[in-house]
Computed example of a mutant assay.
Amino acid sequence: MKKLLVTGGAGFIGANFVHYWLTLHPNDNVTVLDALTYAGNLGSLMPVMANPHFRFVKGDIANTALVEQLLLEERIDTVVHFAAESHVDRSILGPDAFVQTNVVGAHSLLKAARNVWLKEPAHPLSHRFHHVSTDEVYGSLESDEPAFTEATPYQPNSPYAASKAASDHMVRAYYQTYGLQVTLSHCSNNYGYYQYPEKLIPLCIHHILQGKPLPIYGDGKQIRDWLFVEDHCRGIELILQQGHVGESYNIGGMNEWQNIDIVTLLCDLVDAEFAAAPVLTKRYPNAPYAKGISARSLITHVQDRAGHDRRYAIDCTKIEKTLGFKPTESFASGIRKTLHWYLDNQRWVEEAENRDYQTWLSQQYDNRS
C-alpha cells in the first residue's frame, strides 16, 4: 500500500490525478496539500472528500515544517509534486509569485523530503519524489524542427518556464548530491475536466456559452501538442511504478494543433451540440446559436503576448519504449468528453471564478487539516 502526498491536488491536473489514483488504487492513502490560491478549487475534490483513504490539508509547500510533519504523520513514501503557478500571462505581469512557488516552494519540499526520508531513521528508506514539469522549459520550435526529447537543451522563454526549469535543476541536484530518489516528467498542454477557465479550451467553451469574445493572440497559428489529462495521469503512474530513479520522461499527446484550429473546432462542436439538444438554447440564451448565428462570430484577434513561443511538440519515444506508454484517448473523443463535462458542469465553472465562494469554501477547511 502506497502513501502519497500530492501537492497542488486541488488544481486541474492534481485533482484529476487524485481521482485517477484513488479509483485504480483504492487501498492507497492520498494526502493533498494545497494552498488554495486562485486556481485551487476544493470543489474539484468533493467527490473524494468522504473517502477514508483521503485527507486534505490546506497549506503552503514553502512551509517546510508542515511538509515534514505530514511526511511523518502519514508515513508518506511518495510525493507527487504538481503545485505550481502555471499561467504564462500571469508570469509576465507578476513573476515574483512564480519564483516563490515554483522555485522556493519546490526547494522547500525537497528539503523536507531529505530531512525525513534521508535523515529520519524511523522512516522507510524506500521513497520517491516525482516532479511534474512542462515542455515549456525546452523553449520554442520552428514548424519543421523535430519534437522535444529528454536531451533537448533548456531554453525557457517566459518567467513561468524559467521558474519550472530552475525547479527541475534543483530536483536533479538533490538526486545527484543527496541521493533523493527522484523522477521527473515533462508534459504537453493538458485538457480535460476541472481545468480553471483561464486556459484556452475551458475559456473558449465558457465564453461561447456566455456569448463573450474569443480572444486569439496574433494570427492564432501557434502550435501546441494536446494531451488528455487522464492520459497524463496514466503516464505518471507508469513512471512511479516502473520508471528509473534519476530519469526524466516526456509525456505528450502526439497531437499537434494550431490554436486557431482548436478554437474553430470548439465553435463548431458547441454549435452542433445546440443543434442536437434544443434545451441548451434555454439553458444558455446568450450563446450565439441561441441567437441564430455561428459561434465563430465570437473569434477576435488581439495583440500577441510578449515572448509567445511558436510551437511546442513532445517526443514520447522514451516513455513509450521503456514503460509502454501511449495515449489511450483520441483527440476526437477527448475533446467531446471535455465539452460534455463543461456543458454539464457550468456551476463548477461559475464557482471556480467566484472568489467570494472560493474564500468561503477554503475557510471551511482552515481548522480541519
Rank of each mutant, 00 (worst) to 15 (best):
H206Y: 01
Q210D: 13
H207D: 12
S185Y: 05
K111T: 03
Y175H: 15
Q195N: 12
E198N: 13
S143F: 13
Q155G: 09
A83C: 03
V99S: 10
D168L: 09
G211D: 06
T134C: 10
F129W: 06
L118A: 05
F82N: 03
S158P: 06
G94W: 12
T149L: 08
H87K: 08
Q210R: 13
G192I: 02
K199H: 12
L125S: 13
A106T: 08
Y193A: 06
Y154D: 04
I201C: 03
A151E: 13
P153C: 01
P197G: 08
N157L: 14
L93N: 15
T177Q: 14
N102C: 00
R90Q: 13
V99A: 13
R114N: 01
A151V: 09
Y191I: 03
D168K: 01
A151L: 12
V132I: 15
N157P: 05
V132R: 02
S143P: 06
Y196V: 01
D135W: 12
Q195M: 12
S140T: 14
P156H: 02
V182M: 06
T134S: 14
A173I: 10
F148L: 04
E198R: 11
G139C: 10
T152C: 10
A166Q: 04
Y193N: 00
G94L: 13
K164F: 03
G139P: 04
A97H: 11
C204D: 07
L141W: 06
R172A: 13
E120C: 10
A84H: 04
Y175W: 15
H207R: 15
T152E: 01
Q210W: 00
P202T: 08
F98Y: 15
S167V: 00
P95G: 12
R128L: 12
V99W: 11
P121F: 05
Y174H: 06
C204S: 11
H206M: 11
A97L: 12
S188A: 14
Y178M: 09
